[in-house]
Design a protein around this nucleic acid. Sequence first.
DNA 1: TCGGGCCCATGACAAATGTCATGGTCATCG
DNA 2: CGATGACCATGACATTTGTCATGGGCCCGA
Lengths: 201, 201
Amino acid sequence: MIRVLLVDDEHLIRGAVAALLALEPDIDVVAQEADGPAALAAARALRPDVAVLDLEMPGMDGVALAEALAKELPETRTVIVTRHARPGVLRRALSVGVLGFVPKTAEAQSLADVVRQAHAGRRYVDPGLATEALLVGECPLTPRELDVLRASLAGAAVPAIARELHLSAGTVRNYLSSAMAKLDAGTRHEAARRAWELGWL
Amino acid sequence: MIRVLLVDDEHLIRGAVAALLALEPDIDVVAQEADGPAALAAARALRPDVAVLDLEMPGMDGVALAEALAKELPETRTVIVTRHARPGVLRRALSVGVLGFVPKTAEAQSLADVVRQAHAGRRYVDPGLATEALLVGECPLTPRELDVLRASLAGAAVPAIARELHLSAGTVRNYLSSAMAKLDAGTRHEAARRAWELGWL
DNA sequence: TCGGGCCCATGACAAATGTCATGGTCATCG
DNA sequence: CGATGACCATGACATTTGTCATGGGCCCGA
C-alpha cells in the first residue's frame, strides 16, 4: 500500500484527485492539506511514502515545499502536478530531488502510474515537458537582470526598484533593457512575463 | 439518475472530477470533453441533464459555451466551475442562464449538491462570490474604454490599437488614461489587468 | 598577467506614454 | 427651449521609457 499526502489549495480539485487516486487498490490517500506549513506538519506526523504537490499555491512555492520535504523527510518521494509547466521550474524541481513532474493536461490515469514510479524511486517526467525544457536551455540572464525583472514583475516603478537594489535609475533601465534584448521583448512588462513563463523568476 | 456532461481542458482534472461525481449514486457522467466544439457536439448527441463547464479554456470562453448550450439545448442545465471567480463573469454567466457557479476552492462534496440543485432547476451561487459581485457593482467603463483595454490586454501597441479602431493615437491614449483613472491604475497594463480581474473584459 | 565577462554608473537622445484643455454630438430633464 | 452631462475625439505638452555609447572596477580562467 502506497501512503500518499495530497497538497493543493483548491479544495474541490484536491478532493477530486483524492477520489481518483482512491480508485487504485494499491494507493491510500492518508492526508490532504491546503498549504505549505500544514503539509509539512502532516508529513512530519504521518511520514507518507509519496507527496503529491500542486505547484500553484498562494504563499509557499511548490518547489520550496518540495525542498523542505526533501530535507526533513528524505524517505518521502515527491511528485509535482502543475497547470502550466514552465521549463525553468521543472529544472529547479528536479535539482531539489522531485521524482515526478506531471502537467494537469496529462492523461487522468497517468497520475497513479507516476506515483507508483516515484514510490519505487524511479524518476518520471512528462516527455513533452522534458523536450521543451531542453529546447529552452539555460537561463541567459545575469543575477542583476533577474533582480530587476523580479521587481518589475511585481509592478514596481524604476525609482522604487533603484532604491530597493541601491542602484541608480539609469542602471536599472540598463538591466531592463539588456534583459529585454535577451528575451526579445518590447517592454519591461513583456520581458518580465516571458521570463516568468520560462520559469526563470 | 442525473446524466452529466463534463467539460474541462485539463485531462487529469477532468478525470478526477469525474471520479468524484461517480461516487454519487444518483449521478452518471455520460461524457467528458476538452473544448467547446466537442462539448457542443457531445451535448447534441447525448442531451445530458446537466453540463459542468470549466471557465478557463483555450479557445471558446466558458460563458460563450454556456450561452450556446442554452440556445441549442434549453432543457440542459448548466453549472460553471472556475478557478478565480471574477465578479463580472458571474454576472454574465447568470444572464445567459447558468444555474450553478462554484469556485474550485469550494468544498469537494459541494459540487454534487450544486449539480443536483441545477438539475432541479434551482439556482446556486457560492455565497462569498455573490457578495463580492454585489460589492464590486456595475462596470463604470464606457464601450470605447473597454475596447482599448481589451486590445491593450493582448499587448497591442497604441498605433496598432488606433488603426484597429479607426481612431487617432491621441484618442486611444485618452481612453486608456480615463480608464486608468476609473480603475485607479498607474499604467495601462495595470488598468487592463484589473479590469480583467473584475471580469469586465 | 592579460583578456573577458559581469557589475555599476553616467549622459544624451528618440520614442512612447500619460495628462490636460478643448470642442463636437446627442439624449435627458427642468 | 436651454442647460446639463455623458460619450467621443483631437492635438499640445511634459514625463517616462528604452537605446546607445562610454568608462571604471572587479574577479576568474587561460
